[in-house]
Simulated scan of single mutants.
Amino acid sequence: MARDPSPTGRQEARDRSDSDWAKTQPPRGRREPSQRRQAAATDSATVDLIDWLSENPSAIEHIQKVGDLLTGSVISTLDERFGGSKPREARRILTDHFWCDLLVALAEGIEEFSKAVDRIPEYVTATIIKSRNDERSSPLSEALVALAVQTAWEPIKNMIRATGVEELQRTCRILAVLICPAPEDHAAVQNGALLPLAKEGMLEISRERLEQVFPAEWVRRLRGDLGGA
């Protein structure tokens, strides 16, 4: 749908999403949103992501590569090791949110990796100072060492990022939302994919709909990620 140069399919999906949202308006006085209303809200967010993809064709290719990896070599390996005489049954079990769990966990792992990367200058500085002290080399101020390390680190870090770590993280998150059979029932997708994606690929109306159907703590974290917007 995102690849289609015609916006017709995307507009039809948005119209369906808006219609489903309108049909699930809760009765007056009822506070808890129905499952259908939660589904309508996540559908709205999904349509936003598809629109975003239509404007970012390179992201579509990244998603296709990850999707091909999962449906190709990963499935083949699992079939070989765990499929036994009934590979179709083994595959069916994995449709219970396993693949979106995998993608969200990969995205979170990439985030932890990125945080660790940001701590590298501190580690390098401490290592240099300790090494020089241990070898009784001429002492250098920590400020000087830290500045040298930081100045050298910035272009090196850019080289790492040029390999696409952040893009891969976004790819996993979007694909998790798109393939999840019911994001409204899957906390990992809500917290690990929808939440971080809200600030870059969703319209305000979809964010507002998500706020109406998800818990207050989730909404607080969403608004926090958006800088309190």
Results as ranks from 00 to 15, higher is better:
Arg37Asp: 07
Arg37Ala: 09
Arg37Trp: 07
Arg37Pro: 02
Gln38Met: 12
Gln38Val: 06
Gln38Glu: 15
Ala39Leu: 05
Ala39Met: 06
Ala39Ile: 08
Ala40Trp: 04
Asp43Tyr: 10
Ser44Lys: 11
Ser44Ala: 15
Ser44Leu: 15
Ser44Arg: 15
Ala45Val: 04
Thr46Glu: 15
Val47Tyr: 06
Val47Gln: 06
Asp48Ala: 03
Asp48Asn: 07
Asp48Tyr: 05
Asp48Phe: 01
Leu49Trp: 12
Leu49Asn: 06
Leu49His: 10
Ile50Lys: 08
Asp51Phe: 06
Trp52Glu: 01
Trp52Ile: 03
Trp52His: 06
Leu53Tyr: 13
Leu53Ile: 12
Leu53Asn: 14
Leu53Phe: 14
Ser54Asp: 10
Ser54Tyr: 11
Glu55Ser: 13
Glu55Asn: 12
Pro57Lys: 07
Pro57Phe: 01
Ala59His: 03
Ile60Tyr: 06
Ile60Leu: 05
Glu61Ile: 12
His62Ile: 03
His62Gln: 10
Ile63Phe: 10
Gln64Asn: 07
Lys65Tyr: 14
Lys65Ile: 13
Lys65Arg: 15
Gly67Arg: 00
Gly67Glu: 10
Gly67Phe: 04
Asp68Phe: 12
Asp68Ala: 14
Asp68Cys: 07
Asp68Ile: 00
Thr71Lys: 07
Thr71Ser: 04
Thr71Glu: 01
Gly72Lys: 01
Gly72Gln: 00
Gly72Ser: 02
Ser73Gln: 13
Ser73Pro: 08
Ser73Val: 14
Ser73Leu: 11
Val74Phe: 09
Ile75Gly: 01
Ile75Arg: 11
Ser76Thr: 10
Ser76Arg: 13
Thr77Arg: 14
Leu78Val: 12
Leu78Lys: 03
Asp79Asn: 03
Asp79Pro: 02
Glu80Tyr: 01
Glu80Leu: 06
Arg81Leu: 11
Arg81His: 08
Arg81Gln: 11
Arg81Ser: 05
Arg81Glu: 11
Phe82Cys: 08
Gly83Asp: 09
Gly83Glu: 01
Gly84Leu: 01
Ser85Met: 02
Lys86Leu: 03
Pro87Leu: 00
Arg88His: 04
Arg88Trp: 09
Arg88Ile: 03
Ala90Gln: 14
Ala90Cys: 04
Arg91Gly: 09
Arg91Tyr: 04
Arg91Asn: 13
Arg91Thr: 00
Arg92Asn: 09
Arg92Ser: 11
Arg92Ile: 01
Ile93Leu: 11
Leu94Ile: 07
Leu94Pro: 00
Asp96Ile: 06
Asp96Arg: 08
Asp96Tyr: 09
His97Arg: 14
His97Gln: 12
Phe98Leu: 04
Trp99Val: 10
Trp99Gly: 07
Cys100His: 11
Asp101Thr: 08
Leu102Tyr: 06
Leu103Ala: 00
Val104Ile: 00
Ala105Ser: 13
Ala105Gly: 00
Leu106Ile: 11
Ala107Thr: 02
Glu111Thr: 15
Glu112Ala: 12
Glu112His: 04
Phe113Leu: 15
Ser114His: 07
Ser114Trp: 03
Ser114Pro: 02
Lys115Asn: 13
Ala116Arg: 11
Ala116Thr: 12
Ala116Tyr: 05
Ala116Lys: 07
Ala116Ser: 14
Ala116Gly: 13
Val117Asn: 04
Val117Lys: 02
Asp118Ser: 12
Arg119Ile: 07
Arg119Gln: 15
Arg119Asn: 15
Pro121Glu: 02
Pro121Leu: 02
Glu122Phe: 03
Glu122Ala: 12
